Simulated scan of single mutants.
Amino acid sequence: MIKLAPIVRALGPRARVVHTGQHFDDSMSRTFLDQLRIGDPDHHLEVGGLTRGAQIGHATVAIEHLLLETRPDVVVVQGDTNSGLAGALAANAAEIPIVHLEAGLRSFDRAMPEEHNRVLIDALADRCLAPHETNARLLEAEGIAADRIRVTGSTLRDALVDMLPGDDARAALRDDLGVEADRYVLATVHRAENADSEDKLRTILTQLGDLELPVVLPLHPRTRARAAEFDLGGLLDRLTVVEPLGYREFIGLAADCALMVSDSGGVQEEATIVKRPVVIVRNSTERPEILGTFAHLVPVGPGIGDTARELLTDVAATHAALAALPYPYGDDATARCVAAIAELVGGR
């Protein structure tokens, strides 16, 4: 939703939004639609709460039926979600051109369902819109023809800059949580390999709780359910746990934190915009171009706390060093993406 929002707004009435319902919790859906000014989706499917295979299968059937009925000029899918793969499969079956926003990202970790999704989408896409030259080279190495690839940059900065609260609003957010600017850690944990593993989730929460600064943890519905199942409430009590945040609130807190700890792909890129370091709690990343600068890859274990404490040694110096670094994912990304879409459909 976040990365497609600038494109939806730029296309205006030409865009038709399909919401699969993969995220069916209001805090993961309705709030984002409203804050990103996408409005009500034109079509809403109900595939949330199913297994991965069932989600992809049900969404593919439903989207194909919709495409055969409405015959759009092009289908745009984003990222590596089950919804994205379903959209690509349905468009391929309906013989409608496919544009993949955020193409060419690779973690080379086949244990990640997202890796399978993104590889399959790129194989199907008529236009692969890569956020970085690194991604374009990876696509070419996989045999994807150069005429199917466009390096557009990432629309995330367009979305984030448009949404970032001002100083007063950010101060109010911090006051509500009882934290001070540059004196708290913002954390997110939601990926299946972390949230669904009792040992990993226990380790992550323990490492966060041992940090010297307060840790703000917007708790994903999946993680909340697993923490209750694994009886980890005592570890959550050591953190400032809040309900999932709207995008505006999340980036407002990200902009003023000391550092972030996350297993999210999007948070890694958001760190490059708000100029804050992020400890990536994963075995691999699809954004290697920011490792060692904005991002620090740490598998689940005591290294989480060790790396965080090292980054917190001199917060002001760390932030100043990152502030001097350019955004690595280009300028005018939304305009470049819209131009690539128009090029594919002959300007329609």
Rank of each mutant, 00 (worst) to 15 (best):
M1K: 07
I2V: 15
L4N: 03
V8T: 08
L11E: 11
P13S: 14
A15D: 09
T20P: 00
Q22Y: 03
F32I: 00
D34I: 05
P41K: 15
D42G: 11
E46W: 12
E46N: 15
G53H: 09
H65T: 15
L66T: 04
E69P: 00
V77M: 11
Q78D: 05
S83L: 03
L85P: 07
G87Q: 13
A88K: 05
H100K: 07
L101H: 09
L101W: 08
E102M: 05
F108S: 10
P113E: 08
R118P: 01
L120T: 14
A125T: 02
A130N: 07
P131R: 13
P131I: 11
P131L: 12
N135G: 06
N135I: 10
A136W: 07
G143Y: 07
A145I: 06
R148D: 02
V151Q: 04
T152C: 00
R157W: 00
L160Y: 01
V161G: 00
M163G: 01
L164N: 02
G166N: 06
L186T: 00
A192L: 02
A192E: 13
N194P: 03
S197C: 02
E198V: 10
K200A: 11
Q207C: 05
L211R: 12
V215E: 02
V216K: 10
R224S: 11
E229F: 03
F230L: 04
G233N: 03
L236D: 07
L239I: 13
T240G: 01
G246D: 05
E249W: 07
G252V: 06
D256H: 10
M260W: 02
G266L: 08
I280R: 05
I280Y: 04
R282P: 00
S284T: 15
T285W: 08
E286P: 01
F294S: 14
H296C: 09
V300L: 09
G305T: 12
R309E: 15
L311G: 04
L312H: 05
V315A: 09
Y329L: 13
A339Q: 14
I341Q: 05
E343H: 12
E343Q: 15
L344T: 12
G346A: 10
R348K: 15
